[in-house]
Design a protein around this nucleic acid. Sequence first.
DNA 1: CTGAAAGCGCTTACAG
DNA 2: CTGAAAGCGCTTACAG
Lengths: 343, 343
Amino acid sequence: MTMSNTGGRRKPPTIHDVAREAGVSRGTVSRVLNGGHYVSPAAQEAVNSAIRKTGYVVNRHARSLITGRSDSIGFLLTEPQERFFEDPNFNVLLSSCTQALAAHDIPLLLMLAGTKDERRRITRYITAGHVDGVLLVSSHSGDPVAEELREAGVPLVQCGKPMGSGAKVSYVAADDRDGARDMVRHLLSLGRRRIAMVSGPLDTPGGVDRLAGYKEVLTDAGIAIDERLVVSGDYSRASGEAGAERLLAQAPDLDAMFVASDLMAQGALAALARAGRRVPEDVSVGGFDDSVAALEATPALTTIRQPYDRISAEMVRVLLAQINGEDPMAVILPTELVKRDST
Amino acid sequence: MTMSNTGGRRKPPTIHDVAREAGVSRGTVSRVLNGGHYVSPAAQEAVNSAIRKTGYVVNRHARSLITGRSDSIGFLLTEPQERFFEDPNFNVLLSSCTQALAAHDIPLLLMLAGTKDERRRITRYITAGHVDGVLLVSSHSGDPVAEELREAGVPLVQCGKPMGSGAKVSYVAADDRDGARDMVRHLLSLGRRRIAMVSGPLDTPGGVDRLAGYKEVLTDAGIAIDERLVVSGDYSRASGEAGAERLLAQAPDLDAMFVASDLMAQGALAALARAGRRVPEDVSVGGFDDSVAALEATPALTTIRQPYDRISAEMVRVLLAQINGEDPMAVILPTELVKRDST
DNA sequence: CTGAAAGCGCTTACAG
DNA sequence: CTGAAAGCGCTTACAG
């Protein structure tokens, strides 16, 4: 028992050690490990106390070898990383997915596949069965990785509605269109009538749907859509700044701006400040996301909250269900208007 | 061969399939997989082409079961996550570590252990051998996890100099003290004489060392240290704002601020703007990190660049060496002054 | 240089 | 409810 442990790693106890300690067979130990079905209370008890005593932790490799499952999940980013890492939403998503999985004792493998080469390597790794399923963060349409994984039958859930074909892919998304509607209605309720919009990229669902919500509410209010009031950015801060500048040039009489992400709204705020427009006195500004960027902005941004904690939890739930044989499904979560100082 | 693949996952080829295809034994296949020693060129060739043909990918679980290695690395965060996720440096670190490991075909497991419970669970997981080594991001002194892992003999490298005991732990860090010296010298060269500092937390090495560099240069320049010119924050934006406000109250005649992180400097900039001080005309402001926060700031921040790409690469290199039996080592990387518009 | 064989630590029918 | 046994896919001495 008194093993000389000179810095090296001890050999961990195996199921065999537990069985000996508990006075049962390895099969019985395995049974209590896997749910305790068909095990007598006495054996159950003996095994549990032996596990505590030995400090036994299951060897996942041995288990995976036989079950054919890896008991791990991949978190895959298939686009240039800068975009995601710049975006505060990404952090929230990554950390809450990690936590949701931790609750199931499932480790998360982070996979970055920004280049073609990396995508090939990682697709191979995944299809070889090294993870049981994939949480995919990729907004653009026609992502080849998503398609390949789907064809290979890898359980998959996307964050955000996929643009592409109506293929049966699971996804979890906030209700972009409804969020946009809420924001524009709020702006209208403030008496604003020349409401501009900086949308997201129009090859992403968030870009398209938020713009659609904007147009819908204005039209319903009897306000004609003025194309000079609409520009689009790429969700980066810089593009929000450029977009706002363009709007100020095209439509100097604007009295509100709905910007499709908080980060872009930060940029818009900078452009407005430079142009000498006061926020919210002269121009009301609404963002989208309710990320830390909304609070960091000056003034603090009125925005549409995307429930990223719930999104992550649902992504994990849907993926786990799919791994267990359930069919794909889409989950749409409601957003919420958060009023702060910019409107 | 024409297996009906109704959406399910095909059973991947095994070493046995490759052996049959190549007309050799499984042992020989394994040998070429593991470096090709003691294999004839002909066999080598046959096996490689069989691998291509079958699309074989090694089953890591089977391999790990026998080698006793997991062929994966953990990236462990032992503090409340908000801190790290708010900090843009963290993203850079995480993504470049992932990439550095990908080059070795080693997957990275993300591990968040913000609470005591999680720390216990994860320590257990790690010491059970589920990862071969750990990249640890934890700045505070006396982190119990670091200590436990070290005692268990788990290969470990920390990001940043550990505060605690002079224990033999590997770490990789930027030269904080030297970076601080460069910044303060730069401020002096601009003619500034009432240079204030917002330091980091004084229970972190970055907090202590950057402050030491500041004091050293001033003293060398024959300027007495004025304690009213020194406050400390916790690296958050808010604490930078609060710190700058305190400085302005305590020492209204200050003509420069050296702020120990770009994020805090953003906050300081906001406080200065509110106080009506122009940057850099009235007050020169220097940051630290050269994170995206430096570029997002208005005006763009003069700062000290921490080479996070190199830091990550070195962390991975040192960890891999340690896994292969090498002794721990510390690596200190030089910083660089980046001049922008705030000084 | 190469094949046959043992064994890594676990799970799971199969008998009882 | 429980034990004995087979087998998951690989690596590695061991003979040749």
